[in-house]
Each structure stands twice: as structure tokens, then as C-alpha cells.
């Protein structure tokens, strides 16, 4: 049985706006995947239902066999952690240490355990030198890492990252890659919403594409990024290198620079 089961789930906001329509999928323990699609496609609403911030209007979500309908958000969020798209929706302490320590404190851990955990996750998120700072004195991209550390500190089974790559520079991107790999090594499930297709190519195999409230594709990245129907329907962008390979009529579904270069030099040998 899959760790996360989403069964025919729809969600309508209280104002009557339907954001997600009949979505179904399964996600395994220790799996990592990306969710892509335009703003308004239903990505954030879908993941918020996975950690109980929202409850399906129709259909059911099971986490480790338990229907989310029978549990409080506080109970579910011990298993499934969600890092908000906007860190300012999440941060409320005046120093980074207290912000990260808040969750473990609520879990009833000892001071020593809390301090160990905070230091460990702060290091993982690359923010250990900011523990005494007020989060609001840090740049947006660093605040995002504060909120990621908060979720890591809860030692949840599933980590959901909502647009962690927004506003990140080259170094921040590398830090997120490192984090995702660490989580996966520790058998955590990582679900990432992103608009950065190069980031998807470099970090994931499985890609879920959402468009107009529904899942329109759920397959390997190569099949997604070379499926022009899916690309058109969802208005996602083909990775830059794939676009180039396509317009040069290469006979290979190229995604990366390495693949491009290999194709170039191998086709040379054939002559």
C-alpha cells in the first residue's frame, strides 16, 4: 500500500472557487517528485490537503493508511511537513533559534534534544550562523531556509517544499539539492513544487504536471519534457537545452548539457 494515497480528491474554497478537481495519485515512502504547472493550476491546494491544512471537499487522502479526515492538522503535521511558499506566512519568532525550536518544543522534547536538533537542521539548511538573528533581518531567500529548517526539525516522514527555488541564487539552489538528497537518503518522501525546469531535470525523475485543477501527466521527466501536448496544455517550459535540441532536430529526447554534448560527439563518430 502506498504511503500517500490521493483518491479522487476535489477541493472547493469556501467562496465557491474550485481549485482542485478529481485528482488521484499514489506516492511511496522515500520517493522524491516534482509538481509543476502554472500558477492557479491547483498545485498548492493539492499539497496543502496532504498535510491537513485543507480537507478534501470530495474524495479521500490516506497517509500511511490513515484517512486525513479522522485526524487534526496538528496530528497529521507530525507526519507530513509543509514549507510555505511565502516564508512570512510561517515565521513568527524574533530569532531564528526560537523559530526552529518551536516545533520540537511542542513535541515535548528535552532542552538538550531540542538544541541538538536545531543545530543539526540549521547546519543542513546552511543557516547555522544566523541562529541569533531576527529572521526579518535576513533576505527572503535565507528566510526560506529558516522555514525549511523548521520543518526538518519536526523529523516528519514527508517534506513538502512549495517553490523553494523562487528567488534563490546559484548557491541557494545547490543547498536545496543537497537537502533533498539528504532527506531521500534518510527515507523521507520529498514533494517539491517548482517553476524551474532545470532544477527538475537535475533533481527528480518523477514529475506530476497540473493544469486547470487536474493532473494531466504523472510520469518520468523525459516523457514529460518531450510531450508537446502536455507542455502546451500546462504552459510549462521545456528545459533550455531540450528546446535547443528540438529546434536542431536532434533525434534524442535530450534534457541535460551532458546528454547534448554526448549526442553531438557520438553522431560525429557515425560519419
Amino acid at each position: 500500500m502506498s504511503f500517500i494515497q490521493i483518491r479522487d480528491v476535489s477541493y472547493t474554497y469556501p467562496n465557491g472557487f474550485m481549485a482542485v478537481k478529481r485528482v488521484s495519485t499514489n506516492i511511496e515512502k522515500g520517493e522524491k517528485l516534482a509538481i509543476v504547472g502554472q500558477n492557479g493550476a491547483g498545485k498548492t491546494t493539492t499539497v496543502k490537503m496532504m498535510n491537513g491544512l485543507l480537507r478534501p471537499s470530495k474524495g479521500d487522502i490516506f497517509i500511511d493508511g490513515l484517512n486525513t479526515k479522522g485526524y487534526t492538522t496538528a496530528q497529521i503535521s507530525k507526519r507530513v511537513g509543509y514549507v510555505f511558499q511565502n516564508p512570512d506566512d510561517q515565521i513568527f519568532h524574533s530569532d531564528v533559534y526560537s523559530e526552529i525550536a518551536y516545533g520540537p518544543k511542542k513535541k515535548g522534547l528535552s532542552e538538550e534534544e531540542i538544541s541538538n536538533r536545531v543545530e543539526k537542521v540549521a547546519k543542513l539548511a546552511g543557516i547555522d550562523r544566523y541562529l541569533d538573528e531576527n529572521p526579518y533581518n535576513l533576505p527572503f531567500s535565507t528566510r526560506k531556509f529558516v522555514t525549511i529548517a523548521c520543518v526538518l526539525a519536526m523529523d516528519v516522514d514527508v517534506v513538502i517544499l512549495d517553490e523553494p527555488t523562487a528567488g534563490q541564487d546559484y548557491v541557494g539552489m545547490a543547498q536545496i539539492t543537497k537537502l533533498i538528497n539528504y532527506l531521500q537518503k534518510n527515507n523521507k518522501t520529498v514533494i517539491t513544487i517548482t517553476h524551474d525546469m532545470e532544477f527538475v531535470v537535475n533533481n527528480f525523475e518523477r514529475v506530476i504536471v497540473m493544469a486547470n485543477k487536474q493532473i494531466i501527466a504523472d510520469k518520468n521527466k523525459r516523457d514529460v519534457f518531450w510531450d508537446f501536448n502536455v507542455i502546451e496544455q500546462s504552459s510549462i517550459k521545456q528545459p533550455y537545452i531540450s528546446e535547443l535540441a528540438n529546434s536542431m532536430s536532434f533525434e534524442s529526447k535530450i534534457l541535460t548539457i551532458d546528454e547534448f554534448v554526448n549526442y553531438l560527439f557520438n553522431s560525429k563518430k557515425k560519419v
Partner: peptide
């Protein structure tokens, strides 16, 4: 300087390394 270059330039640099 970890400032990043366009994907096309990165590709060009790799091609140049090989040839």
C-alpha cells in the same frame, strides 16, 4: 564567482572542452 551563466554558454564551454 558563483554568479551563473546561461545554459547555452555552459553548453558551449562543455563542447569547447571536448573540442
Amino acid at each position: 564567482y558563483e554568479a551563473g551563466l546561461p545554459q547555452y554558454a555552459l553548453l558551449g564551454i562543455e563542447v569547447q572542452k571536448r573540442n
